[in-house]
Amino acid sequence: MSEYTMTALPALGGYQASFDGVTLQEVTATAIVSIAIPLGGDDAMAKALQDAYGTAIPRAGHTSLANDGATRFLGMSSEQMFAVFDHAGAHALDVIAGNLKDAGYYTLQSDNWVALRISGPRSRDALERICPIDLNSAAFPQGKVARTTMEHLGVIIYPDDTDSFILLSGSSSAGSFLHALETSIHNIL
């Protein structure tokens, strides 16, 4: 055994706070693996995804859910998706590679991102101060995802429940992103 131990630190140390009508919390233990579909390999990927997860390749801007509900696939572009699932360790890539075999190219993305959930009846009011995407529940229902920019930072956003959104932004700028969200919440309350 090594004399040194490695401890995983979430980007925001497991932040959680509640405000009047809005709750903001860091989502830890979420794994993100990017899956690139090889040129001409759409059919093979569609089959692999169906066989392993019982779901289809999400179109860009849409998500699909594994039949056990545990893994969500975010359509990032026409040839790239992110698999998002609960996983505590750093071996998430092996999980996806094990399931989808050589149907895709896989890159570990878990630590690239900080994940925050903003929820509550006033979550849209707060987000409308920084998010250019139309978050109206009819325009942006569950099953959609968007990658955009908020306060100069790239952000991936998707609704995961009624009045609840998951936000993924670069882990190195997690502090600034949290500050932007907290400021937005302060400004509407």
């Binding site: 179109r59 860009a60 801007g61 026409s78 250019p132 920019t149």
Partner: peptide, 11 residues
């Protein structure tokens, strides 16, 4: 073509 109308500021 895939994502619908988006603000040019993203580009």
């Amino acid at each position: 073509p895939h994502l619908g109308p988006r603000d040019a500021q993203e580009f």
